[in-house]
């Protein structure tokens, strides 16, 4: 007697087989991208030479369990300072992803994985008194929500 098929496997197989019904590329989007490309290449010196832009950033986020206290950025690496449950601050060196965010994986007691990843996003850019480029960053959040609630993953999926 054949075994009963697994509904999860069926669902995933069904969705995996879904082909993109649109065109292989979008002419309008390509045209806009090309215009933006031209515009961008006429941009500032710093935008074309990011390696010359050492940065200093402050991260002001209050979390229920985890607080990202501050971050110092040097080109594509941020040194992010995080406090867990009000404990001592820990500094992590993390690479910045190319979309301007960084993932900080921090050890947290009481989680099955023993760690939690938070995402930090670029908010804005400017220059300090010495003319060095600065960025301000915060925890990635939607619609201006600046708090992050870290809960066990099992609960989040409910």
């Amino acid at each position: 007697m054949p075994s009963k098929p697994d509904p999860v496997e069926q669902a995933l197989e069904s969705l995996a087989g879904r082909a993109w019904p649109g065109a292989p590329h979008n002419e309008n989007l390509e045209s806009k991208l090309m215009q933006s490309y031209e515009h961008q290449n006429r941009g500032s010196y710093f935008s074309r030479h990011p390696v010359l832009a050492p940065t200093l950033a402050l991260l002001l986020v209050a979390g229920v369990g985890i607080t990202a206290v501050g971050a110092v950025a040097l080109y594509n690496t941020w040194f992010v300072t995080v406090s867990v449950n009000g404990g001592p601050e820990q500094t992590f060196e993390v690479p910045v992803t190319e979309d301007g965010s960084a993932h900080v994986t921090i050890p947290v007691e009481g989680f099955e994985d023993g760690e939690q990843t938070i995402e930090v996003c670029l908010d804005g850019e400017g220059y300090d008194a010495n003319g060095a480029k600065t960025v301000s960053v915060s925890l990635c959040a939607e619609e201006g929500v600046a708090d992050v609630t870290i809960t066990p993953e099992e609960d989040e999926a409910e």
């Binding site: 069926q10 197989e13 069904s14």
Partner: peptide, 9 residues
């Protein structure tokens, strides 16, 4: 696939 339609999945 099987008893699972795509919309439900």
């Amino acid at each position: 696939v099987g008893g699972i339609d795509r919309e439900r999945a």
